[in-house]
Design a protein around this nucleic acid. Structure first.
Lengths: 290, 290
DNA sequence: AGAATTCTGTAATAAATATATCAAGACGGT
DNA sequence: ACCGTCTTGATATATTTATTACAGAATTCT
């Protein structure tokens, strides 16, 4: 490991640029469950990566091996060496970095946050929240603050593709009262409020609540004051070894909600997405994904 | 995993008593560096253990496998499963919800993404990227696309508190060329480009590159075309059981970068943050955090 | 839009790997 | 010490697995 310095995984990644489409596809498949898949027969690997047999043979040679058997043999050597190291890298995330490296410490914390957050969430409440968000009979308002507006925007962008009748309000903008003019009873508010809870957000929530809207609050473990008038509160652990709080767990939750809502509305969503797809094609904003 | 519960290593050890002398010798050789040696060709294993080829074949059958290939295949399965669970099979994340619940399935994927992403990142490159971002001698541009501008904004908001000389450019805006007028050599660009790679982003990157700026690319596992002119590319796994991709892993990386940059610049940052603090107090935007 | 180059998969060929057969050797029992 | 049974390895065969050659498809460049 130290003598060669370069693991096969490294070599594959370095070569990634000089590989062709099919070869890259194969490379990713190998890295997908490394090193197990590379230790099977060539044909199995080819099938798994959905490329042809010769493609595998060619790439392996491109990487500098004489043939597939030599490649496998090196892989086994690597595996042997890895198992030999007693406490080896298994408890670090970024291999090649010491466990005190910020990458490992930060990731540890986030995983821990995810564990705690998910462990304390009531699945029923989450499902209810998703149903409220999915309900197209009522308008959906998404509200974020100074930092959290990025999360709000993220949710908004996806919801836009899934359902009509949505508005993104940034509570720090002083234009927000205008948005609240048309709020009707049973309209739904998804409100993000993390510590350094914002007065504007609280006021906004109060008005919405007064008008009979239902509030879903996404907050931190200490809970924004908004939670007192929220239908459903989802709290997230956000502490990390940093001067700042982490939104990673919250984003995970938001994304899960997006997936769940999409499933609930699939019938309607499908059409919307196809239309969107078409419009994107016309604007040529994106490259064709190969 | 759940059906047999017994690893091959276990099976060998249990059988140890019922094996003959040569077979036992072979068994120990297999266990010696398990599982690597069992994954090579039968003949190599035989030679390594100093027994004959048929002895290997016979023992493998005695262990209940149909033949050597089946034995190997099981070994690989085991290896695959082993590397998959770095985090102790926390069987479900959201307790009280079945493992098929979207909360659990989605979280599983994200954890997996984190593991892969971190595993493939080169800590040195990450550190270099952080240093570039921390360098206040040059202007820092942060660029996001249709969806990724939310991540870009998140990074921008934090960097704003840490250092001066930064600009957030949204590549979907058609005003972006104006921002590039003043780019100087060695200015730094952090560019987010995830699949459905955007043509605007690529063009922007090209211009920046031409002007001698250094590009740090944050992309997905298939890598945006921008990576060809990027100084440093950080790729993230983004696949989840959803019609959409996940940005959770990417956010984790961004947050880690924020923490790292903050550490690098702590001397200067401290003052900035105190000033910011004061200004927030004056505007009364936030409630006092108790 | 057409030519040249590169990429990719099918099919044939070559190599290797695994299994089966059999005879020699080791061991234990009488 | 001899016979029978069990163990072991050498050899031959069968099977799988890798490599090579080639042609069609895709891509790039002019």
């Amino acid at each position: 490991m130290s003598d060669t310095a370069l693991t096969i995984s490294d070599r594959i990644q370095q070569a990634l640029d000089h590989l062709t489409r099919a070869e890259r596809q194969l490379a990713h498949s190998i890295l997908e469950n490394y090193p197990a898949s590379g230790l099977g027969p060539l044909s199995a690997l080819a099938k798994d990566a959905e490329v042809s047999v010769p493609t595998v043979a060619r790439m392996v040679q491109k990487l500098g091996f004489k043939g597939y058997p030599e490649f496998q043999s090196e892989l086994r050597k690597e595996l042997k060496a890895k198992v030999k190291n007693p406490i080896a890298k298994h408890d670090t995330w970024a291999e090649g970095a010491p466990s005190e490296h910020i990458l490992n410490r930060f990731t540890d914390s986030v995983i821990d946050n995810i564990k705690h957050t998910l462990g304390q969430i009531e699945p029923d409440l989450f499902d209810q929240a998703c149903e409220l968000v999915a309900d197209t009979d009522h308008h959906l308002y998404i509200v974020g603050g100074r930092i959290t507006h990025t999360l709000a925007e993220y949710l908004f962008l996806h919801m836009q593709a899934i359902r009509p009748n949505i508005t993104h309000i940034q509570s720090t903008s002083n234009a927000w009262p205008h948005y609240l003019l048309d709020v009707k009873p049973n309209d739904v508010f998804v409100i993000f409020d993390m510590r350094r809870y914002e007065n504007n957000t609280l006021k906004l929530a109060e008005i919405a609540h007064t008008k009979g809207a239902k509030v879903i609050l996404i907050t931190d473990q200490w809970r924004s004051p908004v939670h007192q008038l929220a239908e459903i509160s989802l709290s997230n652990r956000i502490v990390v070894p940093s001067a700042w709080d982490s939104a990673a767990t919250t984003l995970l939750l938001v994304e899960t909600m997006i997936a769940a809502v999409q499933n609930l509305n699939w019938g309607d969503t499908k059409d919307r997405m196809e239309q969107l797809e078409e419009m994107f094609d016309q604007t040529k904003l994106f490259r064709k994904f190969t």
